[in-house]
């Protein structure tokens, strides 16, 4: 299952690198069904859906990767800080608890109302929405590890916090970082396409899978190709990321 998921992800990535483009407006070929020239058809401005889908996927992947990198870096930094005996985590945890009461899409819409549309704004607001989650879970993780015997032994032998972090905590966080990373990546892909669908995401004329689908809404009944292809890419991305991330659903024997 995981192998298949990896192959699908890799294929989508190669596809997005190979065919990407904004697509030229050509009103003479508007709303053309798939043909050998335009395998995914064209939209109401005559732009090639194939190249728009590919570039949209690439932008999506880039945004989700940056959000994931920022969130994980934040988690690693926090778990290092949590390790210091003199560090007071109370403030961070209570701020993160109060951020938790704002749903992530609502937060992103709020940031977009204040700062306007743009890719950088999108990355910041999506990363912000993960902060509360990350600061909670990385706290639990660093607590779990720092209770281990070898960490106590290292402390007793006067090991510095930095040494303990690099040699004991970080290697033990690998599993956590992997799972957290996949889930942040997945939710960023979905959030980015949803926000672009609403018109508050990737600014036009840059394509996004979400905005291609929202362009398709008025012509939904005739232009099936404008829905099928971007939808298929999102679904394949999301399903394969889910398969990669989740542990198999087995707890009882």
């Amino acid at each position: 299952m995981k192998k298949a998921a990896l192959i699908i992800l890799f294929t989508i990535f190669v596809f997005s690198l190979a065919f990407g483009g904004v697509g030229f407006t050509d009103l003479q070929i508007r709303l053309m069904p798939p043909s050998s020239e335009h395998p995914f058809g064209t939209d109401m401005l005559g732009r090639d859906i194939l190249s728009r889908c590919a570039l949209g996927t690439l932008i999506s992947i880039l945004i989700a990767s940056s959000v994931t990198a920022i969130s994980l870096a934040f988690g690693i930094l926090l778990s290092f800080l949590y390790l210091h005996p003199s560090f007071h985590e109370g403030i961070i945890l209570s701020v993160s608890d109060s951020l938790k009461s704002i749903p992530s899409i609502v937060l992103a819409l709020f940031v977009s109302a204040i700062a306007g549309p743009g890719i950088a704004v999108l990355v910041i607001s999506l990363s912000l929405s993960h902060i509360s989650d990350i600061s909670r879970t990385s706290y639990a993780e660093s607590r779990r590890i720092s209770k281990e015997g070898y960490v106590e032994a290292a402390r007793a032998m006067n090991g510095s916090t930095r040494w303990i972090f690099l040699h004991h905590v970080l290697p033990n966080m690998k599993g956590y970082l992997y799972e957290q990373g996949i889930s942040v990546f997945l939710s960023s892909i979905i959030a980015e396409s949803s926000l672009s669908f609403l018109g508050c995401g990737v600014p036009q004329p840059l394509p996004s899978l979400g905005s291609i689908l929202s362009d398709a809404r008025p012509v939904m009944t005739e232009a099936w190709w404008m829905i099928l292809f971007p939808a298929l890419i999102i679904l394949l991305l999301a399903a394969s990321l889910q398969l990669l991330g989740s542990k198999p659903d087995t707890t009882a024997h």
């Binding site: 609502v106 977009s112 109302a113 609403l198």
Partner: peptide, 29 residues
């Protein structure tokens, strides 16, 4: 309303709607 506020870049409207949502989610939790 939130989407409208974001598209019109209306910070006050958006802030007010977010505040109401925060109160509701607080009550739910």
């Amino acid at each position: 309303l939130l989407v409208k506020a974001a598209l019109e870049r209306d910070a006050m409207l958006s802030g007010a709607a977010v505040a109401v949502i925060v109160i509701i989610t607080g009550a739910i939790s």
